[in-house]
């Protein structure tokens, strides 16, 4: 078995897979990759299975040394990547010789980047998944000095890459009116629907506080409802009128009124918007959201067929993304998470 030794890492880096499903009634949310599309890209590049686990980085990577000859894949938000000090590209397979050092730096776009190994990382499984949920104390906690073992996949994979999907530039996020939208007046809902939102620095795997340019959102009623289950992507309005979008590591239940719920396909799109940037919402129908989900699933299924052999040595290419100018047909992006 081959492994990767951690030479440097941030506490925001975690092991993630598709997440744990079926425990919401016991107070356990799914966790799992913040960008399910990026997770699928890595699986396609290495020929991994859909349940294999990767390392998720938030805004900044880490440094790793290979114990053995192995291929790894990089996906999600493009980060600076250097193999033994030489720049290598993103969204592609990188082959490491024993002792090679892979250095992953700051994100150039987006937020969440992923490092995959053949067969996934073989860390502890809790309630059927490897996804780390730091607050709940589930899953492996990464630390310097550990050697993470890879699974049974092919240790070496032909050098290959994927084109950059379009969703990193997407700044219109699709959403449905939420089950408690009737607690808001029509006028307030119209204000909310037209607002520009800024992603604040109060963001993590639990959720994102977003700041509307129209001041606080006012719930007319519903501030004393009893708690019930929260869906991924619910936008809740707390007493101060600031919306929060609840994501993979959210609390399972809550009692604040939820005005809207993101379309499943846009969960990852929002998660990848850098702090300080703006977006708007587009309220869509349930049927439209399901159509988007169907397209998204078909897109993920097709990833394997779109893995291209790299003609040039990626180590020589600092501008791989610019090189792949054939239009990125990949719409949407995201973690529909619980496809079961």
């Amino acid at each position: 078995m081959s492994g990767l030794e951690i030479l440097s890492i941030l506490p925001t880096a975690t092991i993630q897979d598709r997440g744990r499903v079926g425990f919401l009634r016991f107070g356990v949310t799914s966790s799992g990759a913040m960008d399910g599309y990026a997770l699928a890209e890595g699986q396609a590049l290495l020929g991994n299975g859909p349940d294999d686990a990767a390392i998720e980085f938030a805004e900044f990577g880490g440094r790793f040394r290979a114990t053995d000859m192995m291929s790894v894949a990089l996906s999600g938000a493009e980060m600076q990547a250097r193999l033994n000090g030489v720049e290598c590209g993103w969204r592609q397979v990188v082959t490491l010789a024993p002792g090679d050092v892979l250095d992953i730096g700051a994100a150039r776009e987006g937020v969440y980047g992923y490092l995959h190994v053949p067969g996934g990382f073989l860390t502890e499984t809790v309630l059927g998944a490897r996804a780390t949920h730091l607050r709940a104390g589930f899953g492996h906690v990464l630390a310097v000095g550990q050697t993470l073992m890879a699974g049974d996949g092919q240790r070496q994979v032909a050098r290959a890459g994927l084109r950059c999907p379009a969703y990193f530039d997407q700044r219109v996020i699709r959403a449905l009116w939420g089950p408690q939208s009737h607690y808001f007046t029509d006028a307030e809902r119209q204000r909310f629907a037209k607002a520009h939102f800024t992603v604040t620095k109060m963001r993590d795997r639990m959720g994102i506080r977003i700041r509307p340019d129209i001041g606080p959102i006012h719930a007319e009623l519903g501030l004393s409802i009893a708690s019930d289950a929260i869906s991924p992507g619910d936008i809740q309005i707390t007493g101060d009128g600031l919306p929060a979008v609840l994501l993979a590591d959210r609390g399972p239940t809550g009692g604040y009124p939820r005005i809207a719920t993101l379309a499943s396909v846009d969960l990852a799109v929002l998660a990848q918007i850098p702090t300080g940037q703006e977006f708007t919402l587009e309220l869509v129908s349930r049927a439209e959201a399901v159509d988007l989900l169907a397209d998204y699933r078909a897109d993920i299924k097709g990833l394997l067929g779109r893995v291209d052999p790299l003609i040039r040595d990626p180590r020589q290419m600092s501008d791989l993304l610019a090189y792949n100018l054939i239009d990125g047909m990949i719409a949407g992006g995201p973690d529909d998470g619980e496809q079961g």
């Binding site: 449905l176 009116w177 939420g178 089950p179 519903g222 004393s224 409802i225 009893a226 019930d228 289950a229 869906s231 991924p232 992507g233 619910d234 719920t261 993101l262 379309a263 499943s264 349930r286 959201a289 399901v290 989900l293 529909d336 619980e338």
Partner: peptide, 14 residues
Amino acid sequence: IAGDMGILVEFGEV
């Protein structure tokens, strides 16, 4: 309707 993957059966508010 609770998102594109959910239906909420609501029996009360309290």
